[in-house]
Design a protein around this nucleic acid. Structure first.
Lengths: 207, 207, 207, 207
DNA sequence: TCCTAACCGAGACGGTACGTCGCGTCTTAGG
DNA sequence: CCTAAGACGCGACGTACCGTCTCGGTTAGGA
């Protein structure tokens, strides 16, 4: 992803890429990332910890941030459960939010994510890569949940799903990033409850 | 602010701090910040633009981030209007959100704020300073709005105000930081409408 | 010396110069100088140790080197004995060299003197001040010794006294500064013996 | 020289040291040294003039003084002639001293040497490096000259050669560093004459 | 079985910025 | 007019990373 792949039917001569080095680099990056945060680690440190050379890292990842993106993503993906259909909007949303909340309680992903977000502000290309990995998949899942709720007439057909998604994830991100209050299960339930109520009978709408 | 002030009745010996230098540094920082973003500017550049020495900067601000905090704060404060009482929760909330949305449309505060948030993840002391300046004041205002709504029986007395605040501001921050959709006036109105509806008749509550 | 003195009959208005501060500065400089060497000490350190302000130091001494010159000189002068007339050239010269050799064995004047000499290379004005205090007085004394030796016909009347002085002091300075061999009493005696023999019956001269 | 060389049969991994950079740094240092003196030049200036980075300089030379040592040494070595055997002690000594005197008349080596000597006073390791390059080789040559003079019975076998060397070089260094008189050819001849006479028939010795 | 291309590690390179230190000057209040 | 205190602009320090570049050496497919 970080580098354009060659045509699949290309001759592929020469020594192939070392999978061992790739793994070592991603793991070293993940470890250092969770230990110290993105801004505190250096490519030199990653190279040393991975037993790789800096040239090898730069051959495959153009920047520290894109490396971090890959590293956190591969770490994150191992262990994200399915999202079952619980039959109600509130239930489905909670099933999406809950693992997220628990994951963040275990390890300090927050500071890595914040750093990625910061980088995304000034680098549209990176922003797109970030969203494609960390934002859109989740929104796609949740969007489906709202669509199902519309289909079963639980919420109005003209619901502004995008805004609803922003309320839902926005609240979670807000607590995660600003740390003014803790990200707990009860909080998640309240957020879901308010969002469901909000889209069910929006203000200014006849009952 | 970044440095503990001496006791007010202290003798005040030695050459006093230069107010001129302080202003010049804050202004130079603001300008550079909005032009290039926090991570792209250097203390050397700030010093040069301000006509000050790096030593003077470091004498009063321990890090680039705390300097940026002060700079953006003083820039932001000059020109934030009052928040009138409109008589309805929705009106009051919009009056809070609107200037915020318009401000962000003018200048790229987003990437500076994102960088500050990133720093806050790994530095609890900085996080506290950040919240004290950029988070708490706004929440205090909004909290008052909800309290007034309770007092006039517009929303239930047991409303979880903190969660409601997170829904409101979280949605705005979410769009600002992730950039998956634009931060527009209609969006702000929808967010306010959903939040008001959400807290008015929460799900699972008898009507 | 470091500053032009006012005319003796000038009105001398205002607070007079603090003799206490002057002493404290010179003593602090001497101590730091012998502890750390010229290049390792700072005006700030001298000011702090002396309990004086930097402004006061700069008011009376234009540079660190001239301050050091004054400080070492005043330290050195307290305790330089007389040079008696022993009746022979060798005896007189030894009487000049001996205290010098013993003085250098006690305290590390060498590194201060070396630093002063280094400064003198690039600053003619300083070089003159240095020579006036540390070189000429000693040469004057020794020159007198040679003149007496000529008067009593111990050495030829056409002796190149200046060159002889350079042989004598040069040898001592050489060992002091280069440290390739130690500066001992026997060495001093051998130097004096060779110099006396050298000027007594120079090569190429009929016997 | 400033850094311990690896074993000759070591695998020599990684990019080899750039000989071009090494030369450029030494030449830039030499030029700046002779133009401005050691204390007036900065590592930044050397790096800029050499087109090298400061890191590269510090990788190979631990201090400005050791760099100057290497630079002046390599500059000096290019162009130091042989020392022929003239058949007499006086002739041999003059052949040693003369090029030295003429060299110092051309370029301001004096102030660089003085600065190196100053540094040597407080840094035994540097002192040793300095002596190994600038003192011992010359003394070795001159020592040989005295030994030859003893072998041909020109001077006594019990001559204190070390002291004689100190008289000879000490006188030259003295004039060079203190500048109280100029370092001329006649002076060099007189010094040699006095030294030869001094060691030929030392005082207190039966004839 | 070689050749050659693409990989790998180690580590030196030219740069930029860091945060600190010392310089010599200045601006206060106070003797 | 002097003094202590201490902030100021400036320049250099030595270090840390950046991203790039040689090296010698390794690992494959194609000739």
């Amino acid at each position: 992803m970080a580098r354009t792949e060659p045509a699949e039917d290309a001759p592929r001569r020469g020594r192939p890429r070392s999978e061992k080095a790739r793994q070592a680099i991603l793991e070293a990056t993940s470890e250092l990332l969770l230990e110290h945060g993105l801004s505190s680690i250096s490519m030199d440190a990653v190279a040393e910890r991975a037993g790789a050379s800096k040239a090898t890292i730069y051959r495959w990842w153009p920047s520290k941030e894109l490396l971090a993106l890959d590293a956190v993503f591969s770490e994150w993906e191992t262990g994200t459960p399915d999202r079952p259909d619980t039959g109600s909007l509130a239930g489905d949303l909670l099933a999406l939010i809950d693992p997220w909340v628990h994951r963040l309680a275990e390890k300090p992903y927050g500071r890595v994510i914040a750093a990625l977000i910061a980088r995304a502000q000034s680098d549209p290309q990176f922003a797109q890569a970030y969203r494609a990995r960390f934002v859109e998949p989740r929104r796609d899942h949740a969007r489906l949940v709202f669509v199902r709720a519309i289909e079963r007439d639980e919420i109005p057909a003209d619901t502004d799903i995008e805004a609803a998604l922003d309320l839902l994830y926005g609240a979670v991100y807000h607590r995660m990033l600003h740390g003014h209050a803790s990200l707990t299960d009860p909080f998640a339930r309240t957020v879901v409850a308010y969002v469901v109520a909000g889209v069910s009978r929006p203000a200014g709408r006849a009952e």
